[in-house]
């Protein structure tokens, strides 16, 4: 009896403390209701983009705008959200199909095109947030510079530095005005330091987590 009383006391107080420590705590239904009105742009449907889009779809995001020009290849399957029978398919179409299998309520617009400085503002103008999910450093720079120039207030979340394996604690995020960076900001991909599912997945989900944080706290 005493144990039961103690148990109830701690249980109740722990729950009370948790909810008061998090003024923004919401039920999943409340989260989905708020996210349903939001649009997120995903620039690139590779390791970061495909996994980030899937995490946002599972969370109940209303609309995704996904742009990429590539097709699914066997070498993508070590980290990207595609299946063996999708090899050869246009990535954005394959990703739309996979997201539909997870959450058919997500509205998805795809652009099977290479993003550049000119088409970027048209593709992503209606987004509440843009996720930079490119592979090459030059492309990342083009995208971030264009985003900061075209949309000075819109949050942009970039993935920088996640090659290799191990050292999870080096992966972090930081904010510079409306630019958010996820990654260790040092690990560059190379023959000896390939991108692998765990660290790429951590960053993709870190980006998705920041999207939720920004959208739900706004």
């Amino acid at each position: 009896m005493l144990i039961k009383l103690l148990y109830d006391f701690f249980k109740n107080n722990l729950i009370l403390r948790t909810s008061s420590d998090k003024p923004n705590s919401m039920t999943f239904d409340q989260i989905k209701k708020k996210l349903k009105t939001k649009t997120v742009g995903i620039a690139g449907a590779g390791g970061l983009g495909s996994n980030c889009a899937v995490a946002l779809a599972r969370s109940g995001i209303g609309k995704l705008i996904i742009a990429d020009f590539d097709v699914v290849s066997e070498s993508n399957l070590n980290r990207q959200y595609y299946f063996y029978n999708q090899i050869g398919q246009i990535k954005v179409n394959a990703l739309k199909e996979n997201i539909n299998q997870i959450n058919p309520e997500v509205h998805i617009t795809v652009h099977n095109t290479k993003i550049d400085r000119l088409n970027f503002p048209y593709i992503f103008s209606e987004c509440d947030i843009i996720v930079e999910a490119f592979d090459k450093a030059e492309e990342k720079q083009m995208l971030i510079e264009t985003a900061l120039t075209e949309f000075p207030k819109k949050p942009i979340i970039s993935g920088l530095g996640m090659a290799g394996y191990g050292n999870s604690n080096s992966l972090r995020s930081r904010q510079i005005d409306n630019l958010y960076i996820c990654g260790d900001e040092t690990s560059e991909i190379s023959e000896d330091n390939p991108p692998l599912a765990p660290r790429v997945g951590i960053i993709a989900n870190m980006q998705a987590n920041l999207v939720l944080e920004i959208l739900l706290n706004s």
Partner: peptide
């Protein structure tokens, strides 16, 4: 001043 290194991988 913020200096951000562009790093390939994704």
């Amino acid at each position: 001043v913020d200096v951000i290194h562009m790093i390939s991988g994704g």
